[in-house]
């Protein structure tokens, strides 16, 4: 009996130890945000080199896809404004092609062609956002003759715009596609257990040792986690929220997720979280479903073939697919949960 107690006492210390040395973490200031990379079971020298290569790749993508700073995308926008065929820089073609596809699947709610509208609101700028919002008449003029991804024609390497106000801003999909590229690179060099988190949006491969990666989803209104989940191999978790980028003017808050139909920030949602293997799709879908709101999100999710969705509406009520409800463990119970098929 005495021996049993002694063994229990000693092993309670030993078994609490976890092999932290197998985990390699680093943070990169790139893509206009912080990218946190966590690798599991990788020798330190290999991990450090992988991080350096990832930083180089992400800096390149940030330059070529940036909508207004000098680079391939800003040059593409200058040429699109001419409304004539031109040969595009190959670095912009994947994101433009994917954007066209997702524009159609989202019934136009994901629409990167509204770069001029984003600029009107000053959300494209690195400067302080302090309002006032654009004039209603200016917004209405824009939305009455809305440029869309259908106005961008692609023929091999050649592009043409058929609308004078086209300006591509791929901010709502660029992070997702960048994360996907990093994951592909890690797998190519034999790293199969990792999380790449770019400004809060992430993709995971493999596991954390002998358990799944665990991820917490931040509460849209509190400084804490609303729900946690185990993330499986090759899953992305992307959230669009009204708290990410916003300004206040005359006691009203304006955030950066614009509804292309109205030209104003979508106002029925606090946040949307999407889980999907394709990080680019998850990124675009989170934006589209945010704009769709509690009335329309199911229709758009079905069309985009997204099965794992959580939408938190302006009242803080949680709307989820049944599949998503099974995955989440709530840390803060919402007042109301609406679970749909």
């Amino acid at each position: 009996m005495k021996k049993a107690f002694l063994i229990l006492f000693i092993t309670s210390f030993i078994s609490a130890c976890t092999p932290k040395e197998q985990e390699y973490r680093d943070s990169l200031f790139v893509l206009g945000t912080v990218v946190n990379v966590t690798l599991w079971g990788v020798e330190e020298q290999k991990a450090a080199q992988a991080i350096k290569d990832i930083e180089t790749d992400l800096k390149f993508l940030h330059t070529v896809w940036h909508p207004w700073r000098f680079g391939a995308m800003s040059r593409t926008n200058e040429l699109l404004a001419l409304n004539e065929w031109f040969s595009a820089n190959p670095s912009v073609l994947p994101v433009i092609s994917k954007s066209k596809q997702l524009y159609t699947l989202s019934n136009g709610l994901f629409n990167p062609a509204i770069g001029q509208l984003i600029a009107l609101w000053n959300f494209h700028s690195d400067e302080i956002l302090d309002g006032p919002p654009p004039e209603r008449s200016t917004i209405d003029t824009f939305t009455k003759d809305l440029p869309t991804m259908d106005h961008v024609e692609v023929n091999g390497f050649r592009l043409r715009a058929t609308h004078p106000k086209i300006k591509l801003d791929v901010g709502a999909i660029a992070k997702g596609m960048a994360v996907e590229r990093v994951i592909t690179y890690l797998k190519q060099i034999g790293i199969n257990n990792a999380i790449v988190n770019a400004g809060g949006d992430l993709k995971a491969i493999g596991q954390h040792g002998d358990r799944a990666w665990s991820v917490g989803i931040r509460h849209p209104r509190q400084d804490s986690v609303i729900a946690g989940l185990e993330v499986h191999d090759n899953e992305s978790v992307f959230t669009s929220g009204d708290y990410e980028r916003n300004f206040e003017y005359a006691e009203k808050r304006y955030h950066h997720i614009l509804d292309p139909r109205t030209g104003y920030p979508a106002d029925k949602t606090q946040s949307v979280t999407v889980i999907h293997p394709d990080a680019g799709l998850a990124d675009a879908a989170a934006t589209a479903l945010f704009i769709a709101g509690p009335e329309q999100w199911q229709e758009i999710a079905r069309k985009m073939k997204i099965e794992l969705v959580m939408l938190i509406d302006q009242q803080g009520h949680v709307h989820m697919t049944k599949a998503m409800a099974k995955r989440l463990t709530f840390e803060i119970e919402p007042e109301e949960k609406i679970i749909v098929n």
Partner: peptide, 27 residues
């Protein structure tokens, strides 16, 4: 928990004893 001022390149990472509950935070 983690936060950073990206333009100023200053970051804060919180540590505690034992294991943290989540490997990564989505927001």
């Amino acid at each position: 928990d983690f936060n950073a001022c990206v333009p100023n390149k200053v970051s804060i990472a919180l540590l505690g004893s034992g294991t943290q509950k989540f490997d990564s935070i989505n927001f």
